[in-house]
Amino acid sequence: MSEDAIKIEGKKKKSLFIDKVREILPDGGNLNMCITCGACASGCPATGLENMDPRKFLRMAALGLDEEITSTPWVWMCTGCQRCIYVCPMKINIPELVYYARQSWPREERPKGILGSCDMALRNDSCSAMGASPDDFQFVVEDVLEEYREAQPEFKDMEAPIDKAGAEFFLNQNSREPVTEPDEMVPLWKILHTVGVDWTYGSKGWGGENYCMFLADDEAWEHVTRTALNKADELGCKIFLNTE
């Protein structure tokens, strides 16, 4: 934190970062209602990281220190868990401010891991952060299903349908299992089978994770969500079931 005084003079700079965000959020996200009470900072696990806390972040935005708040890595350390809104007397939406601070980073300078995962998800219609294509997914599911039907005869007529039209539940599936730990998918299938649930995966949009939202890339996030929902609607499913 440089010690030279922050100078404020002349006409108020109009397009402050905080003003832009206030225009986007419903009733301005109450962003300038802060009474600096510290409730958010008192309950935020990210307080202290990068010598930053939610109150200080909002304060810097309010005082127009735009370049500082759009460059601090702290924005990647706020998970958006909303524990600050939960107790803020003024219901100030700091996580959204952080989201748009993330968005103000040039896309390629954003953390490699998140950028990579989001681009992977955009690579094919699976929207899987590990890039598994619908066919790979189908292959793994069918392969594991076959193996378990044999090994555990009680589940010989267990199903793990993909694109089953008219199914009641449309399930998404985190990419980690199909890609690295296929066996971990089985317990869920067994449960669904035991209950006799009419469910299906979607060949498209089955990826449960959403790194595009973490990347604060709106189009990508919209694309991933729209792909999944369209698929669910296309299959005529009634419930979009998150297994997270």
Partner: peptide, 12 residues
């Protein structure tokens, strides 16, 4: 001094 930022400010 803004106590939250612990930084001096000067307003004209």
């Amino acid at each position: 001094v803004d106590p939250i930022l612990n930084r001096p400010l000067m307003v004209t």
